[in-house]
Write a protein that binds this DNA or RNA. Structure first.
Lengths: 100, 100
DNA sequence: TTGGTATATCGGGAAAAGTCGATATATATT
DNA sequence: AATATATATCGACTTTTCCCGATATACCAA
């Protein structure tokens, strides 16, 4: 994964907030119905409501984060749930400590 | 310092290279005359030659890195020397480990 | 199969970033 | 003071990013 793409994904206030919100999904998304936070994450609509941007923008932002390996997506029925990608975040840590 | 600004500064291949080159200034800039690498760093012209972009572009890139606290500048005579800002880099580390 | 939700994708306009050449500024030398 | 060199700033143009509304796709329910 290209380092530049990772940093570009992080170069946006809303995308940083999303990553941060996903650290505490139960606290930050108390309205998600049938929540299975631990296993799958938070669905797009919940994130969109909290961010206050359009549905298309948030969907795009989430796929930018996904392409950078910072989140993973799981489709369950009509919903797509996103959660933090611990592996990608650890990789970022390594990049900063060794290659930067 | 705004986190987004830091990540934007890192969202460019040349700027990442510059940061990396400055880890080993003696190796990467063997032609710098009157080198005082440890104390002040590497001058703009040397970085420009190595990067192969225009003088104005590199000057701008260096000030972007400086505004993000990733490098520091020292003026000595006609030259401006840039080196890595260890404090800023450690701060980035902390951001990634605690706020991301 | 028809309609209803959730998400993804497309097309576009505005703003920001990338990059250049030209010029300005600061410093050094003669 | 005049000139030369290193760096910074400016103006312009191109490419990318931001963000939207509209539409398409996937899935579910009746």
């Amino acid at each position: 994964m290209d380092q530049v793409e990772i940093f570009k994904a992080l170069s946006n206030k809303t995308r940083l907030q999303i990553l941060n919100w996903l650290k505490e999904p139960i606290t930050n998304f108390p309205d998600q119905p049938n929540a299975d936070f631990e296993n799958v994450g938070v669905c797009v609509g919940q994130i969109q409501m909290k961010a206050g941007l359009s549905q298309s923008t948030i969907s795009e932002y989430l796929s930018i984060l996904q392409r950078a390996n910072l989140v993973t997506a799981t489709r369950v029925g009509q919903w797509t749930y996103y959660k933090r990608n611990q592996e990608g975040l650890e990789n970022l840590n390594k990049i900063i400590n060794t290659e930067l």
